[in-house]
């Protein structure tokens, strides 16, 4: 039951550490790398507060061993804004449209929305609801979260057009 050498790229930075294989990815991120943005909500794979981006896919980091993520490219909520602190369009939209109340689910919601809008840059309301169906919010009733993601999609499409 020895520790293993774990290497991964997290928010663009190479990271290395010794960890027990049984360490869950969420614990590795929060306790070893001090990235406390991804939250532990239900700890059973239901709520999505621990959602991170792993090799270009949304995953629940409470249901993955750090050993499985060895060598992976991981993005957490800390890696979504620009390095100078400028908020991502999705983060701006959540603020603008009151897409959060207590904020506990927000890192998972935004990290999931970040990937969803790459999978589908102009989702319908229904597609947004299906896309975030693995993320639970106990405050908002989802209405403003859906509005925020929808607004972010429009902003992002407009800036893509402006760039062309």
């Amino acid at each position: 039951m020895s520790k293993m050498h774990v290497k991964m790229t997290v928010n663009g930075k190479p990271q290395e550490a010794l960890a027990e294989p049984r360490t869950l990815l969420i614990h590795f991120l929060r306790e070893e790398l001090n990235l406390t943005g991804p939250h532990i909500g239900c700890d059973t794979g239901h709520c999505g507060a621990c959602t991170v981006d792993l090799n270009g896919k949304s995953v629940k980091s409470c249901t993955m061993f750090v050993a499985q993520a060895n060598g992976a490219d991981v993005t957490t909520i800390e890696g979504i804004a620009a390095p100078d602190g400028t908020l991502h369009a999705i983060q701006d939209a959540f603020r603008e449209h009151h897409g959060l109340q207590c904020g506990f689910c927000t890192p998972g919601m935004i990290t999931r929305a970040y990937r969803l809008l790459q999978e589908n840059p102009s989702p319908s309301e229904e597609e947004i609801r299906v896309g975030i169906s693995g993320n639970l919010c106990r405050c908002t009733g989802y209405q403003n979260i859906v509005k925020s993601i929808s607004a972010a999609a429009e902003t992002m499409a407009a800036s893509r057009e402006a760039a062309e």
Binding site: T51, T63, S133
Partner: peptide, 9 residues
């Protein structure tokens, strides 16, 4: 089955 994150893995 489950949700998008779980279907990815």
């Amino acid at each position: 089955i489950a949700d998008p994150q779980i279907r990815n893995v």
